[in-house]
């Protein structure tokens, strides 16, 4: 069970400013139902660039709801310029702190605010232009680098706590560790990080696996009157079915592991595990 402060409990039990402003000056939508939390923030800005009203709708846990509620309370009456400088830490502090695993809830509040301001000013968000590092939660390198710098993050676990990156399949952990080193090294900048080789997306991976099977593996198996078909790719697990003489062959396991898996590891990703669908 999480240890929530009284403030968090209070804003969860009796959240303030729930709803949507009709004809809002700016709307920020962040997160998704797949991620497990999402926030729609609407703000009303007057002619003097003061936020006169803010409302939220949040799908998520207690700390996500409390962070959203607190954010809207802080925003009301705030100058737009000041709002631009609001950080996730400001939200967390106002709540008397959040459990470290829940810091991403405050980050979500800040991102929604930025999105709402960008919607109002028409200036595109720089963070969204980064390269996606965590596919599970769609977190970009720029978002991660900023979280590292602003919150002095020192481990991959902390990055996950603040941005959720790495909290799904965990395959981006290596990349996160690299970003950590790059960001804490004063010499480097986000620009150099971007030059690094792009990570394969799930789609690219499947395509590549298909390609290798079609181009190399199938022809080889066919020489022995065998055949192979790709059934499914789930993370690192590649399910294939062996056909023809391969199917009943006593050495099919050897074929699978020694040949198919080896080939795919060499040419696609060295963590792949090939399994047979029988």
């Amino acid at each position: 069970m999480w240890e929530y402060t009284d403030k968090v409990q209070e804003h969860f039990t009796n959240p303030k400013n729930v709803g949507e402003i009709k004809n809002a000056s700016g709307t920020g939508n962040v997160g998704s139902i797949a991620c497990g939390d999402a926030l729609r923030l609407t703000i009303q800005v007057d002619e003097n660039d003061i936020i006169t009203d803010a409302k939220f709708k949040t799908f998520g846990c207690a700390s996500a709801i409390a962070s959203s509620s607190m954010l809207t309370e802080m925003l009301k009456g705030m100058k737009l310029e000041d709002a631009k400088n609001l950080t996730n830490d400001d939200i967390a502090q106002a709540l008397g702190g959040l459990p470290k695993e829940k810091m991403h809830c405050s980050v979500m509040g800040r991102e929604a605010l930025e999105a709402a301001i960008a919607d109002y000013t028409g200036v595109m968000l720089p963070m969204a232009q980064g390269e996606v590092v965590c596919e599970c939660f769609g977190v970009t390198d720029l978002e991660i680098i900023r979280a590292i710098k602003e919150n002095s993050l020192a481990s991959v676990e902390e990055i996950t706590n603040f941005t959720k990156a790495g909290g799904g399949c965990g395959k981006c952990e290596g990349r996160l560790a690299a970003l950590l080193v790059e960001s804490t090294d004063k010499q480097s900048s986000p620009a150099t990080a971007q030059k690094k080789k792009k990570r394969m997306t799930a789609l690219e991976k499947i395509k590549k696996i298909e390609e290798v099977i079609e181009r190399e593996i199938k022809p080889t198996l066919k020489k022995d009157d065998g055949d192979i078909q790709l059934i499914d790719v789930d993370g690192d697990f590649v399910t294939v079915s062996l056909r023809g003489t391969c199917a009943g062959c006593y050495s099919s396991q050897t074929t699978l592991k020694e040949y198919v898996e080896k080939k795919l590891r060499e040419q696609v990703l060295d963590t792949l595990i090939v399994e047979e669908d029988k």
Binding site: W2, F12, T13, I33, G36, D37, F59, G60, C61, A62, A64, I65
Partner: peptide, 14 residues
């Protein structure tokens, strides 16, 4: 649908 489990549990907890 459309609500999150931890929030439900905490409200039940009350």
């Amino acid at each position: 649908e459309y609500v999150e489990g931890e929030a439900i549990l905490l409200m039940m907890n009350q």
